[in-house]
């Protein structure tokens, strides 16, 4: 078993009196892909914001590559190797698509201009955004904004990539290409945490699945086992798998 790259210990976050994440603990081994499912409001995005450093936890600890990063700012975590995408795309609208990736490659990735350019073009090609490289990011349609989120998260060359519903809003025939991209990322050795409502997409890549509800972990383990768990089916998928998966 490889050493865990991410260790989450008794993590908690509340907004006022509302507890969004409660006493959450898990480890993730390097190179693994963890899929996270759960109903809306389960705390999935909050968990990602806590790991990425956009939010500070109310309690608990987060270790990345053995180092305590709980109190580190988002930019420091990004430079240490945590890349991410946002559920609602947050492009740098005044910059071009290429420049969006260059920000990540130069700042989080610590690359020089030529290295960053090479990396950015390579990521644009794998994510299917190459033809839009010189377009202003603010002018992209939704699908390309989603792609840009993934591409910018990758451009830094992260060792841990946090993905937040990158398949949401995609058509059925666009999903396989996205799954393929994530698979390639995984095969290059990157550890991935992927929150996704499009369950079959994340199941195609995940080594482990976690189901969250009301900020608590309902199940964690082998993907099929988690998805067949009666409790998971009840709170997330509906009463029967047939209903839920159509």
């Amino acid at each position: 078993m490889t050493a865990p790259i991410l260790e989450v210990e008794h993590l908690g976050r509340s907004f006022g009196k509302v507890s969004v994440i409660e006493d959450l603990s898990f480890d993730l081994a390097a190179g693994q892909t963890l899929g996270i499912v759960g109903p809306n409001g389960a705390g999935k995005s909050t968990l990602l914001n806590l790991v990425g450093g956009v939010l500070a936890p109310s309690s608990g600890r987060i270790r990345f590559e053995g180092q305590d990063v709980t109190r580190l700012r988002a930019e420091v975590r990004a430079r240490r190797g945590i890349g991410r995408s946002f559920q609602v795309p947050r492009p740098f609208g005044g910059l071009t698509v290429l420049e969006n990736l260059l920000v990540a490659a130069r700042f989080a990735g610590g690359r020089t201009t030529p290295e960053a350019g090479e990396r950015a073009l390579q990521v644009l090609e794998t994510t299917g955004l190459l033809s839009q490289a010189n377009a202003p990011a603010g002018s992209l349609r939704l699908l390309d904004r989603k792609r840009l989120e993934l591409a910018r998260g990758l451009a830094s060359g992260p060792r841990l990539l946090l993905l937040d519903e990158i398949a949401g809003g995609l058509t059925e025939h666009e999903v396989p290409a996205l799954v393929e991209t994530v698979r390639e990322v995984k095969e290059s050795g990157v550890t991935v945490v992927w929150i996704e409502h499009v369950v079959h997409a994340v199941l195609a890549v995940a080594d482990q699945m976690m189901c969250l509800t009301y900020g608590r972990m309902l199940a964690l383990g082998e993907p099929q086992a988690v998805m067949n768990d009666p409790e998971v089916r009840r709170v997330y998928l509906g009463s029967t798998p047939e209903e839920a998966l159509g």
């Binding site: 990425g52 450093g53 956009v54 700012r73 988002a74 930019e75 990004a78 430079r79 991410r84 946002f86 947050r90 492009p91 740098f92 609208g93 005044g94 910059l95 920000v103 990540a104 700042f107 989080a108 990735g109 610590g110 910018r152 830094s156």
Partner: peptide
């Protein structure tokens, strides 16, 4: 300027 939250998450 365009998005401080995303900027921080990309290492700025």
């Amino acid at each position: 300027r365009d998005d401080p939250v995303a900027a921080a998450s990309t290492g700025v």
